[in-house]
């Protein structure tokens, strides 16, 4: 346990090993038959239980109303698949624009959130920084309480952010939970690394960019994913702060396709709109999911074992 090569070199080491990953290493004993078949069963069941609903959602989105009615709601095998539901949605007036808005918000927001979170987490992870303890408590406090909707609205208005895209980013810039997690990770980076860097004459900024961030790709990927998903899925702030429908993000637009009041009680006077076509509701689920499906494989490599192997010579 001790000294370190430079992180860059360590990652190179890792890259070199990747080819051999699919095989069981020589030192590992062969798996027991019972163990591996139990594992196979569990995995297969899991995959089926997790996939089947998606297949149902996808199939239903491709089914005709006739088939959906005949099946009573969900269709597993559409006999004559149709993209009708998708074309209905995609030909809507502002869908294309809304997708672009969402992408821009998600990318900009995630980058800004990550930067702010990383810098604050880094500053709070080091001992001896004046004020870091009270600041940490201030952050933790935000996990437990919440400002109300109306004060938030008034604040956003006073800052002149109504009808601005910044209203979709700034109010949720840092998530305390993500921050605490990031900080915990930074604190787990071995002290020896900092010392070695300091002996080399590196300052706080240099240590962050050359040591901490490269060693923290995993947590940055995870927290980045959480931020990205939050930005992508958010609709409430947009509904509240944007009067111009031309600026709406895609999730808010998609929700209008599934406007659906539940059965109103007898004394709940009201507007009752009949449920939308089931195929459209399901197509909305699929469309909302697509970018997540596209993003995940790119992040997956950071969750793969052995990323840091070799960083620390044991």
């Amino acid at each position: 346990m001790s000294l370190i090569t430079r992180p860059r070199a360590s990652l190179a080491v890792n890259r070199g090993r990747r080819g051999a990953k699919d095989q069981r290493p020589a030192w590992e004993e062969p798996p027991s038959r019972l163990g591996s078949s139990a594992k196979a069963v569990v995995i297969t069941v899991l995959v089926i239980v997790m996939t089947l609903p998606f297949v149902t959602v996808l199939s239903t989105s491709l089914a005709s109303q006739k088939e959906i009615t005949a099946a009573g709601g969900f269709v597993l095998f559409p006999t004559e698949p149709t993209f009708q539901a998708y074309t209905t949605i995609l030909s809507g007036g502002i869908v294309t624009r809304a997708v672009l808005v969402s992408l821009a918000i998600t990318v900009t927001g995630t980058v800004l959130s990550l930067l702010t979170t990383i810098t604050l987490a880094y500053a709070l992870s080091k001992r001896g920084v004046p004020g870091s303890k009270p600041v940490l408590l201030l952050v933790l406090f935000t996990l437990l309480f919440a400002p109300g909707m109306i004060p938030m609205y008034v604040l956003v208005k006073e800052l002149g952010l109504l009808d601005s895209y910044w209203a979709l980013i700034l109010p949720g810039l840092v998530n305390a939970f993500n921050l605490v997690v990031m900080r915990a990770f930074f604190m787990n980076i071995p002290e020896e690394l900092y010392q070695a860097a300091r002996i080399d004459g590196a300052g706080d900024w240099r240590i962050l960019t050359r040591i901490v961030m490269p060693l923290s790709k995993g947590v940055i990927a995870v927290v980045g994913l959480f931020y990205a998903v939050t930005y992508w899925n958010a609709f409430f702030n947009a509904m509240l702060y944007l009067n111009d429908t031309g600026k709406w993000p895609i999730q808010l637009v998609l929700r209008t396709y599934v406007v659906q009041s539940k059965q109103l009680n007898a004394d709940q006077l009201g507007i009752t709109h009949m449920p939308p076509q089931q195929s459209i509701s399901m197509a909305v689920v699929m469309l909302a999911l697509l970018p997540i499906l596209a993003l995940y494989p790119f992040l997956q490599k950071y969750f793969t074992k052995g990323v840091l192997t070799g960083a620390i010579k044991g």
Partner: peptide, 26 residues
């Protein structure tokens, strides 16, 4: 949004069901 509306259940709840669970003010 992280940090803010996550815990503000008033936001959350109205977002979820304001239209759905209607208050009958005659």
């Amino acid at each position: 949004m992280p940090g803010m509306s996550r815990r503000s259940f008033l936001n959350l709840s109205t977002a979820v069901a304001a239209g759905a669970v209607a208050t009958p003010l005659l």
